[in-house]
Structure formats: structure tokens, C-alpha cells
Design a protein around this nucleic acid. Sequence first.
RNA 1: GCCGGGGUGGUGUAAUUGGCAGCCACGCAGGUCUUAGAAGCCUGUGCCGCAAGGCGUGCGGGUUCGAGUCCCGCCCCCGGCACCA
Length: 877
Amino acid sequence: MDEKYFPEKVEEKWQKHWEATGAFEVEADTSRPKFYCLEMLPYPSGFLHMGHVRNYTIGDALAWYKRLQGFNVLHPIGWDSFGQPAEQAAIKRNIQPREWTEENIAHMRGQFKRLGISFDWRRETAAHTPQYYKWDQWFFLRMLERGLVYRRTAPVNWCPKEETVLSNEQSSGGVCWRCGAVVEKKNLEQWFVRTTQYAEQLLGDMREIEAGWPERVLTMQRNWIGASTGAYIDFPVKDHEEKIRVFTTRIDTIYGANALVLAPEHPVLEKLLEGSTQQKEVIQFAERVRAARSQAKPGEDEVKEGVNTGLIAVNPFSDESLPVWVANYVLIDYGAGAVMSVPAHDQRDFEFAQKHTLPIKQVIAPITHEKEPSNFAPQLGVDQSVEMQQAMTDYGVLVNSSEWSGKLSQDAIAAMAEYAEKHGFGGGAVTYRLRDWGISRQRFWGAPIPIVYCDKCGIVPVPEKDLPVVLPERAEFSGTGQSPLAGVPEFVNTTCPKCNEPARRDTDTMDTFVDSSWYFFRYCDPQNGDAPFDPEKAAYWTPVDQYIGGIEHAVMHLLYTRFWCKMMRDMGLVKFNEPVKNLLTQGMVTNIVEGTNEWKAMSKSLGNGVDPDEMVAAYGADAVRLFVMFAAPPENELRWLETGIEGAVRFLRRVYNLVWRWREQIQTAPQSAPSDEDLTIAERALRRATHRTIARVTDDFERLHFNTSIAALMELLNTLSDFTAQTTSATEPSGNEKSELPDVMVFRAPDENASAGTLFAVREALEAMVLMLAPMAPHAAEELWEALGHQGGILSKQGDRAKWPQADKELSRKEELEIPVQINGKLRGRIRATPDASEEFLRSAALSDEKVRVWMEGRDVIKVIVVPQRLVNIVVK
RNA sequence: GCCGGGGUGGUGUAAUUGGCAGCCACGCAGGUCUUAGAAGCCUGUGCCGCAAGGCGUGCGGGUUCGAGUCCCGCCCCCGGCACCA
């Protein structure tokens, strides 16, 4: 140990030690409790940014804490190394994506090591290696067998900037998740994963993770899945066999239906309109709508427009004839792609009816307190299109609804669905907003889809023995909107696995969210050549105990990985429903934008980025990590403040100096605690402070309140500093020491005759503090732990392995309390008492306190409230 | 519009169950050391007031001996979704 704290030197020393001793390497061991601590894997963009530093620092703190608590901790890292930017770099710098990606990984790996993040590096995986993406392809084939992957032509989201298809999740809000470009609609043949098959489970199983996931994320997923309970109804069409199915949540309003409205793309139209004079008009209308949509901006509502098809449907409840319309406001991929239009009770139908002057019929009356449903006599005409200003969408009482009139909406909804089912024209149903996951990407840098197209045999899956379908080393990146793989003949041209005739490979690659859906299972068994992972090994480590990452993946990655887990469960690979027990979404790291007073996420374009490497060079990794953990709770925004890091270094230096000062003397401290009588008041107080701090910090770690645990450690340091000052002889340091080390705080030597009690209390405090500091500042902690006389490192595998300190319950209670005394709720005095003081004692002590008496003069005591250990409140009049 | 989260000093924040509002840190001010500065150390720092004291957790009400915390109404900020039938 040097006299002065040199972070660079200390950090290098311990990083080498960890590497040499394999300190963070773990194996499954059923005799020990496990803890799987996982941070979302990074995209290898080239450089770690402060957001990464925060993410991995949080995870690392937890990993250290759990190790010290005796858990077998899996803390792995890997790379989300497929994806769009590698291709852009290829175009821009004339370098192949692989080269670019691997250079970036090498650099970022170095950054991680300089930060001292405690990964088991032997388990490192990268999505772009054939050893990894082989299993993406394997999963694809397994899902294909199970009907969970299928190919179809569908209108898909197209990012014009990246020239590829996006999933619904990736184009949420009408913009590309990565580049922000406004997405267009394109009709393409694509591979889809049947996520909708698990919609119900994706929603229902949330119960299992409710306690461990942020409300925000659960809500976002719930909204995204969007379950809607209602009923479907099949409407017969006059002169046709086909029926038209609609979905509605308001079957109680069915007597108010004035039309059926279909989405322009509805498949049933083709048959129904065959030979009809209206056919042409409907087709033209559909074309017009599609053209308008491909140029529409997100958030802009179209004007409701439609055409009458001339078809007539029959309301199965009322036998009324209803015209069948096609309109732009009905969505093909939600519900049944058709609705019954009830303008009186649905705002959209109302607007449509106004536009096309269709009749409006009220069938729900509002409930008022003056009129009971039983004696409500509707005096309503049939057409209210003149009177009504907007739709009445509330529940109410049914009117104008034949025998259903007089029922309440809630009751009618259930009864009418049941009636429809009984009579065979409908029934209760739940529909979901969630759509299937389109995974085809017209990109080069991804896992090739293991499919071959043969003129004779059609779509043929690549046999498992031929996996992986390896990505070619190079391709041309022209930006033509077609996959670059299509321009690589040696890749495209192959033979059909079935008939051996010439055939063509699928030239799309998989969405990179496929890679990240199961990577943390691969970490459990990263070298496996025969399977994605050994289910037994995964059974030990998974599910993930704590997952940490950004909120931006609330719906995309976290929904896909939940789906994947259920799919793997049904394949027998895992035994649970949910892959992640606890989720922490960390907040953004922001910095002030120069010339403004706005805090915004660090970014190149705003010029407010801070380079982690520079910070580590200037202050040390430990100080950077400590500040990041201290400045705000993990979920909050973190405002970057250089003065804050300086504060963190100051704290570390003070701890360091204190250890330096005591390191020799405390070697002679007694091994077991002296009895209370052998301790001075100050020594006892220090011991109590130590144990109270242990209790607080432990509790804070359990709740992931890292910022308050650091505050508690700072308090202990302040207490220890005061204690040290008191027990130190008043002699000044010699002039020599000063001049030799002018910029170091020079401490006076502790009293050479320090009592055994002092030495014990100080050592206890220092050891506890150093160990509790290890999660945030592991390098400094290691150095100090060694200085305190321990060999082989904190995680030493030989005997002297450190354990998280235990709080002594008795000691962590306060010896004496200051109990506030209030008069009529206002603080007027304080009394001293032990924690076990009786109510009676507190009461009389409070009433006889001098300060309190002054305030009671001339007034009557009405009541005295005594809360033991807390306060006394005297009510006077 | 619907759903979710939030509003506490100059700043980041803290406050198991309703029980001393503001821990810890940043910043600021004063002091000490120094030829001077930096660093370090010490003291102070919610607002008003010389003080006694009063006021104070977005606003207005309520429950309670007692409310940052619970209830009702409102305002504002952030995030998500949005023609979802």
C-alpha cells in the first residue's frame, strides 16, 4: 500500500490479480445458492458511453454484493453484434462488417476491463459468430416444425432509410426504433413468428413477475398486447353463402347498427363482389386508401371515407337489413377486420355517418338518478342524426332494442353474447392488439434464414446437419432495397436438400432481436456444439434473478424474450414461464447542453457527451463508478456533474488515508470483541455506528437503493474520522513529512497507547466499511482489504475469502434516544431516554421537562400521546 | 383522449408502519494553512426575522393528537399508446 491513493496503479494491480486468479469465473454448483445477475448486452458500436457505464456498474455492484453474501454469482457479458450500423460502416469506410464489428468488440472489451467490471470472460459470446447464430437457425427450424414460424404476404412496416422491414414493435408510433424515420407500408412476402399464439400467456403470466418488474414496463406490455373483451357476430349477407364476421365490445348497441363497415383490404370482398357493378369502385377505393396511407404521417387521422358495396347484410338480432360499406377507418389486422357501425354510440361511426348522411339511432339511454331503469319510458325517434352532436359512448340502459330494452349495458353485454352463441351466430371473444413478429430483414449483417426455394419442392428447410448456413465473408452494399445477400451468387445458388436440383437460398436475414431473445441461456453453456445449451446447466442458473437495462426495450426485447422462453418451455428446454424474475430499468445519463440550461441525454449531435475513458484516466474507475451509483437512484435520470466525481474521489481518499493511518496498529487488536464494560462510551458508540451502518447498507442493497447505501458509508466515515480525531494525540506532524508530500493530507499518528477497545472498534469499522465499499469501488476495496492484513484478495479461493459483514442486532440499536416532545403537534422540547423506556416514563419525563412546561403554563392537558422510541405529543387547551 | 409514473432547499437527493421534514453529497459563504493559489481541514448554509418566534414538501379541502406519507377535487411535468371497434 502506498501512502497516497493512486487510482491508476491500484486499479491496474487488482485487474491483473482478478484475471490471474479467475476471481469471477464460476461453474454450476448445486450445493450452493446461485444468483444470475445480467445486464442487457451491448451493441458493439465502438465505444462505451456513460449509459453503459451506469448499466454495468449497477449490475457489477449487485454481483459483488451477492458474491460476498455467499452466492454463486453468474455475471456474464456478450455482444449484440449483428445489425444495421455495421453495414453503414461498411459502405462509409469500405470495410467489411465483420472486421468493423470485431475491432469494436476488441476496443470495448478493453474499456470494460479498465472499468473493472467483474465478468466471467470465459463465457463471452457474440451473435455474429457462426457458433452462435447456428442456434438462431436451429430455433427457426424447430419453430417451423411447430407451426410457430410461417411465411405470408402482408403489408409490413418499411423503413425507407434503412431499407428493411421492421416489426410492429420496432415501428411503434409510426417511426423506426433505430433511426427515427417515418415508416411506410409495403406489401411483401415475409417470415413471421406466431407471437400471437402466446398473447394470452404473455398477458396472464405477468402475474408471476408483477412483484419484480417496474409497473411502467408491465403497463407498456399490457397496452401493447392490448386484450379487449367483447363478442363476435356473424352477419349473413343476402344472396350469398359467405357471412361477415365483426368484433365488438358493445354488443349491447347492436340494435343501433346502421351498417357493416369492412376494411378495404378485407379478403371476403373478392368473393362477395364477384361480378358486381360495385367491384371496380371498391378496388379503386382500396387503392386510394393504400396510396394515402403510405404517405401519411404518424399521428395524423385520415378523414373518414368509404364506399357502399351494394351488398346487404342482415342483423341477426333484429333481422334488419344493413348496407355493407368499405371504409378507411376500419383496420384489417385488428379484430375481424370488420365492424358493425353504431353511430349513436361510437364516435368514429358517428363521424362516418355524418359524412355519408347515414341514419343514427339511439339505443342506449344514460342512467340518471331521477329515472330508474324499470320505469324509464323512451320517447325516442328512430333517427337522431339531427339532434345528436356526438356519440354517447357511456354504458346505460338499452332502449329501442326489442326484448332487450330496459336492461343495463353490463348485463346485456353478457346476455346477448350468450344468446348469439346459443343461436350459432356469434359468442364471447377476446381479441388482441398484438400482431405476429415479422423477422425477415433485407439486410446482410444478420443470421441467414435457413430456407431454400426449389422450383420443384417449394419451400424447403435446410436440414439441421447442414447448419449453420454461413454468412459469406463479403458482399456489395449498394442500398438497392434488396438484401445484399441476393448479390452473392455463391451464397444464393445451392441445391435443394430434397431433390438435389439447383435451388436458391432465402436472402433475408433474421431480425437481431432473435439473437437477443435467448442469449442469456447460451451464457450458461457457451461452448456447446450440440445444442443451444444444456438444459441441465440452464436449469441451475436460470431464470435470471436480476436483469438491468434501459427502458427502451420495455416492449421489444422484453416481450420477445418472454415469448421465446414460453416457446422453449413448450419444446422442453426450460421448465418455467418467465425468464426474468426481477427487472431494473435504469434512467438516462444526461448532461447540460452548452449554452442552455437544459439537461439532455448525452449525444454526439448535442456535443454534451462525456467520454468514460477520459473520466477513468482523470479520476479512476472506482470514483467514476462510485459517483454514478451515488448521484441518483438507479431508475432516475442521472445528471452528470464533474464536481460530483471530485466528491467521490475525495471520499475514497479519506477512506484510504484512514486505513493507511491505522493499518499497523490494528494488527494488534484483540480477535474477539471486548465486553461493553471494557469499552469507553466513544468506543461503544463507534461500534454501534458500525453495526447500524451494516444494517442500513444491507437493507439498501436488498432494495437496490445504492445511493443511500453510499450515504450511509459516508456517515460512517465521518463518525470514524471524528473518533480518530478524538483518540489522536495533539502533536503536529514533523516538518519533513510535510515538505516531502506537500499535496497530501498529513495525518498525525494515532495514539500509540490506543486501548484494545479502540483498536477493536476501529478495525471492526474499517473492515466493514471496506467490504461494503467493494461493490462500488472494488479496486480500492481490494487494496484496503489487503492493507488491513488479508491475503489473496477479497474473493480469495483459499480460506480467507471475505464475507459480507453481519449486523449485530443488539448493537445496531441505539443506546440512547432523543425523543421529541410536541405540544399540539409542534416541537417544543426533547427528552433523553433508552430505547426500552416505558410509556409511563416518557410521559412523566415529557411533562416535567422545563422547556415543555413553559409552553403548558396556564393551559389544561387534555391528552398525552406517547409513541415509544418515537415521540410524545401533549394536547393542551 | 386513455393508461402509467412523478412534483420536497440554489442542485442531485433522503425520510420501514402516518410520528423531529431536508440524511449524504454538490454548490455557496466564512475561517484555518500558505508569500499567493490549489488541495486539505474546521464552521455555517430551507425561507422570513436582530431575536423570540413564525412559515415551509405543486394548489385547495378533508381525516387524525399528529400528514411529504392516507382520502376528495384541481394544476403542472415526464413516459407509453392512440381510428384497436
